[in-house]
């Protein structure tokens, strides 16, 4: 059985033909719609590298069948920046050194973006819990925490201050 999938991705109406029923939303995005931002690192929902919004809710695109996205809204990491201007989360990742190899980055950026949409000034334990589904092998996470704190302070400068940074480093 072969199906056709219509889905809105980053505000654009997209159509894919000849979709095999076993294909994931991740395969649809990466191999059929030319959006390789969401990464494939485990295909089991363990690493979070393929994190995208589906109707505004975070999902691992590897665990969603392509057909399940029919008629729905998907937002990927490619849809976060406003043209040349990076989203504050993206900008903070660049500035703090939260990007090394960058394979986990798209998933973490989307997950952090979602957290800051829900919580103005998250505490460190809140950040850790929100990002616990996203594996990073390069950074040891410290600079990712820094990035989220920085993005939060810029997005909500008057918000409730999060708890003090946990560590210190020079």
């Amino acid at each position: 059985m072969i199906v056709r999938v219509n889905v809105t991705v980053n505000g654009e109406q997209c159509q894919a033909d000849d979709v095999w029923p076993g294909e994931s939303l991740l395969y649809l995005l990466r191999e059929r719609l030319g959006l390789p931002g969401a990464k494939n690192a485990c295909e089991q929902g363990e690493c979070g590298s393929c994190t995208v919004y589906l109707d505004g809710v975070l999902v691992c695109a590897c665990l969603v069948a392509a057909g399940q996205a029919q008629g729905r809204q998907v937002r990927t990491v490619e849809g976060l920046a406003d043209g040349a201007e990076l989203d504050p989360v993206q900008q903070a990742f660049v500035e703090t050194g939260a990007v090394q190899c960058g394979f986990c980055t798209p998933g973490l950026v989307v997950a952090a973006h979602d957290l800051l949409n829900r919580v103005d000034r998250p505490t460190d334990p809140e950040i850790r819990e929100a990002l616990a589904g996203n594996l990073c092998r390069c950074t040891g996470y410290e600079k990712i925490l820094e990035a989220v704190r920085l993005a939060a302070s810029r997005r909500n400068p008057g918000g409730r201050p999060g708890e003090a940074a946990e560590g210190e480093s020079r």
């Binding site: 990466r30 390789p36 931002g37 976060l80 920046a81 050194g97 990007v99 960058g102």
Partner: peptide, 23 residues
């Protein structure tokens, strides 16, 4: 000094071409 990585913006946008993204 610590200038930003030249590939960082591509990576946070999801536009950096990893080997698995080649087409």
């Amino acid at each position: 000094s610590s200038p930003h990585r030249p590939d960082a913006a591509l990576k946070v946008r999801g536009e950096f071409a990893f080997a698995s993204d080649l087409w």
